[in-house]
Simulated assay, not measured.
Amino acid sequence: MNDFAPNGLLRNPHAQSILASTKLRKLRSYPRSRAMLNASKTVVLDCGAGQQLLGEHAAHAVRSKGLITLIHGWEGSSQSTYMLSAGGSLFAAGYDVFRLNLRDHGPSHHLNRELFNSARLDEVVGAIQAIHKTYPQQWQFLAGFSLGGNFALRVAAEAAKADLQIKQTVAICPVVDPAKTMIALEQGWWVYEKYFVRKWQKSLRKKINLYPELGYQNSLFKLKTLRDMNNYFIPNHTEFGDAADYFQAYSIAEDALVNLNAPAHIIAAQDDPIILAEDFARLAESKYLSIETKRYGGHCGFVKNYQLDSWLDERLLELINLRRYPTGDPAKSNQQS
């Protein structure tokens, strides 16, 4: 497909990053996502070990081309603008779509007592296993955005062990080195840190109202920065003693992806203000991993024009179709499969 080549203000990484989640874009994309939303049913997934995650499954009344599971970014949800935009485009193209909420994201705070943290990979693997078992399809795909892209790649690396048959994984601007991402949030444009502090605190207030025994009510009001929050919650509400150990636990740098056994594709931007493009050079080499880096795009943006149309939605669909129909001819591909 055509390369991503925005003009004017759309070359600004901050404009791209903000537009990715703006309500105006959600309004623009709603007509394209309406069919998916009308078909969506809320599902509680049993992820094993007493853990549950919430999601929304949209299926076609007749045979679909396959099932695509989407995972949102940190403090996003199945209702995030980019999730609706991508999901709506994929559904319109004939694929079933499952939009998964990570723990304590969306309206899921009541499902598990313990707090979310990004090292909770087992329950996400369990969720994908439950999705594939409940909605069996010959063609299963997985895609994630930002932290969701990080989770998607880690799930893909566990696929053989977990007996998951994922035909293609796509990660959009995935977190590679969480410690460096946190520094970028702290030292970059102040809007990003303020946004995540506000969203995280709102989520934590929902959680403490449901589980007051977690006991952080008084401390929460004193925490004003991401560093403050990490330094409090990591040693007190995770298995990790400090931020360095925690961030290392979900880093995908170095050898974290060596066990990939099916195609995985990363879409990134050189001007991403949150995920440094240089970090992708630190990923383990794999015949299954390909990386596509664009000059512009910001963080999970890739808005191609002032009508707020998404190049990313088109590219995601193209990548999945290329895996689904490698010959370019659906009839021949179906014969081969």
Rank of each mutant, 00 (worst) to 15 (best):
Pro6Thr: 08
Asn7Tyr: 11
Gly8Ser: 05
Leu9Gly: 11
Arg11Gln: 15
His14Gln: 10
Ser17Lys: 09
Ser21Phe: 15
Lys23Asp: 11
Arg25Gln: 03
Lys26Val: 03
Leu27Ala: 08
Ser29Arg: 12
Ser40Val: 04
Lys41Ser: 11
Thr42Glu: 14
Thr42Gln: 12
Leu45Thr: 02
Gly48Glu: 01
Leu53Thr: 06
Leu54Ala: 00
Val62Ile: 07
Ser64Met: 01
Glu75Pro: 01
Met83Leu: 14
Leu84Trp: 06
Ala86Thr: 14
Ala86Glu: 08
Gly87Arg: 10
Leu90Tyr: 06
Phe91Lys: 04
Gly94Ala: 13
Gly94Ile: 11
Asp96Pro: 07
Val97Gln: 09
Leu100Met: 08
Leu100Tyr: 09
Leu102Asp: 02
Ser108Pro: 03
Ser108Phe: 06
His109Ile: 02
Glu114Ile: 06
Arg120Asn: 14
Leu121Trp: 10
Asp122Tyr: 05
Val125Trp: 03
Ile128His: 06
Ala130Phe: 10
Ile131Gln: 07
Gln137Cys: 14
Gln138Arg: 15
Gly144Tyr: 01
Phe145Lys: 00
Leu147Asp: 05
Gly148Trp: 12
Gly149Gln: 00
Phe151Glu: 03
Phe151Cys: 07
Arg154Val: 07
Ala156Met: 13
Glu158Trp: 10
Glu158Asn: 14
Ala160Ile: 02
Ile166Ala: 00
Ile166Trp: 06
Ile172Tyr: 15
Val176His: 01
Ala179Pro: 01
Ala179Met: 01
Ala179Asn: 10
Ala184Lys: 14
Ala184Trp: 08
Trp190Ile: 04
Phe196Thr: 06
Phe196Pro: 11
Arg205Val: 09
Asn209Glu: 13
Leu210Asp: 02
Glu213Asp: 14
Gly215Arg: 03
Gly215Val: 04
Asn218Val: 01
Ser219Cys: 02
Leu220Phe: 10
Asn230His: 13
Ile234His: 08
His237Leu: 09
Thr238Leu: 02
Ala244Gly: 01
Phe247Asp: 13
Ile252Ser: 00
Ala264Trp: 10
His265Glu: 13
His265Ala: 02
Ile266Gln: 09
Ile266Trp: 11
Ala268Trp: 13
Gln270Tyr: 07
Asp271Asn: 15
Ala277Pro: 01
Glu285Gly: 07
Lys287Gln: 15
Lys287Trp: 02
Leu289Val: 11
Ile291Glu: 08
Glu292Tyr: 05
Gly297Arg: 10
Gly297His: 11
Gly297Leu: 07
Gly301His: 11
Phe302Gln: 05
Asp309Leu: 08
Trp311Leu: 02
Leu316Ile: 15
Asn321Thr: 09
Arg323Met: 12
Thr327Pro: 04
Thr327Leu: 13
Ala331Arg: 12
Lys332Met: 14
Ser333Asp: 15
Ser333Phe: 10
Gln335Ala: 14
Gln335Met: 12
Ser337Leu: 14
Ser337Gln: 15
